[in-house]
């Protein structure tokens, strides 16, 4: 069973494809769309896929053939621990609570697994300590 986040990259030619429907009906994968950024020339979709390992891999290959590039999200958000001084300006703007104060140390922690790369924290950080690498 795979339960991971991916980035799908669309071109203007693949923009109309119904990814979520295909994932469910053809591969029995449960998709959760976390973020979509679509313009006329293409865009990106951040989604979580939950399903059998083989089905997820098949789906990725299937979309590759359609011209939709799928990559697993890894270190899509980077925090410079030297610049960060744990002020917490990013904490209340993070919609997924991936940036949070440790209740004991009050240091700001980053949970990369739940981050949907929305970028709300970037403009909240006064030391420019956070970067998105998407």
């Amino acid at each position: 069973m795979i339960d991971k986040k991916y980035k799908m990259k669309f071109t203007d030619a693949t923009l109309q494809d119904s990814v979520a429907y295909t994932l469910v009906s053809r591969f029995n994968i449960e998709p959760s769309i976390l973020r979509a950024e679509i313009e006329g020339s293409g865009g990106i979709l951040i989604l979580k896929m939950k399903g059998e390992d083989s089905k997820v891999n098949e789906a990725i290959d299937f979309f590759a053939e359609q011209g939709i590039e799928t990559t697993e999200l890894g270190d899509h958000i980077l925090r410079d621990d030297v610049k960060c001084y744990d002020c917490g300006s990013c904490v209340s703007v993070c919609p997924t609570r991936s940036l949070y104060h440790d209740p004991v140390t009050f240091e700001v922690e980053l949970k990369i697994q739940t981050c949907v790369a929305c970028g709300a924290c970037i403009s909240a950080c006064p030391t420019n300590a956070i970067k998105l690498t998407l």
């Binding site: 001084y85 904490v91 703007v93 949070y100 009050f106």
Partner: peptide
């Protein structure tokens, strides 16, 4: 605590000064 309540709604809070600091 990270959340306050105002007229029945929850508002998320965060500090601008570093308590750890």
């Amino acid at each position: 605590s990270g959340t306050i309540e105002y007229e029945g709604r929850k508002i998320r809070t965060s500090s601008l000064s570093s308590y750890a600091g």
